[in-house]
């Protein structure tokens, strides 16, 4: 195993022995990091509201009790007997020109070259300016860690290992789809097309990395 993984790292090629029918290999351009734009698309029409993603995230990131990197926004719809609840998974949108980055007076919050917004805990003073600035309520101060600011970082540590973010791994119905906006592939590419079809200006209007489809029932 170790040999294989070292091999992947060295060559930058990930080989998936998936089905025995097709072996999928993807060459990856190294060094040109700025071209990679990781993003998540959430298909609310696939989301069952099961909260597996939320728990998988807790399990991986060990956020303090009562604090979440991702949540499910549940809303009432309609009136009896035409009533139902809706589920919309939420997390950090990894905004370009992020309000949290702008709000931080210490340069602690910043974007990685691929656009993932992270916080340098050596610089964070825990004053919460970024938390207040976030339009999506995606940030919190971690009481277990000196009130440093934390939030979803698309599981950067898992991405480094070639693993999907914990919530992606955890979603039974594939309501969360993860991909590279610069080079959309497979189902992610289908969803990029769907988003543009249903919401033509979505990528212009939302300079972010989190997108939701439109509910069919409404």
């Amino acid at each position: 195993m170790e040999e294989r993984r070292t091999f992947f790292k060295r060559t930058g090629v990930l080989i998936l022995g998936l089905t025995g029918i097709a072996t999928l290999s993807t060459a990856v351009s190294r060094g040109s990091s700025s071209t990679v734009r990781p993003a998540m698309i959430i298909d609310v029409n696939r989301c069952t509201g099961c909260h597996s993603c939320v728990i998988a995230c807790k399990e991986h990131n060990l956020t303090p009790e009562g604090y979440f990197n991702t949540t499910i926004i549940t809303k009432d719809k309609g009136e009896f007997p035409n009533a139902w609840l809706t589920y919309s998974p939420e997390l950090c949108h990894q905004c370009e020109n992020a309000p949290c980055i702008q709000a931080c007076g210490y340069g602690a919050t910043f974007a990685l070259a691929d656009g993932i917004v992270v916080t340098d805990w050596d610089l964070c003073v825990g004053d919460g300016a970024c938390v207040d600035a976030c339009p999506y309520n995606a940030r919190f101060l971690d009481p277990n860690n000196g009130n440093k600011a934390d939030k979803c970082d698309f599981c950067v540590s898992r991405l480094q290992k070639g693993l999907a973010p914990a919530c992606i791994d955890g979603c039974p119905s594939h309501a969360r789809v993860f991909g590279d906006l610069s080079n959309p592939q497979g189902e992610f590419a289908d969803y990029v097309r769907l988003l543009i079809q249903d919401q033509p200006n979505i990528f212009e209007e939302h300079k972010e990395r989190l997108f939701h489809t439109i509910a069919k029932k409404g």
């Binding site: 992947f8 790292k9 930058g12 090629v13 990930l14 998936l16 998936l18 089905t19 097709a22 999928l24 993807t26 990856v28 351009s29 190294r30 060094g31 990091s33 990679v36 990781p38 910043f110 990685l112 070259a113 691929d114 993932i116 992270v118 916080t119 340098d120 805990w121 950067v156 991405l159 480094q160 290992k161 070639g162 693993l163 999907a164 992606i168 594939h174 789809v177 993860f178 991909g179 590279d180 080079n183 959309p184 592939q185 497979g186 189902e187 992610f188 590419a189 289908d190």
Partner: peptide, 28 residues
């Protein structure tokens, strides 16, 4: 396969973006 193709290919792309990783490690 469709699902895994999209996800896994991206994982490969993002995970092995050396500068991004180095930066993340450096600054976190």
């Amino acid at each position: 396969r469709q699902f895994i193709k999209g996800t896994a290919a991206t994982m490969a792309a993002i995970g092995f973006t050396a500068s991004s990783r180095a930066e993340a490690e450096e600054r976190r």
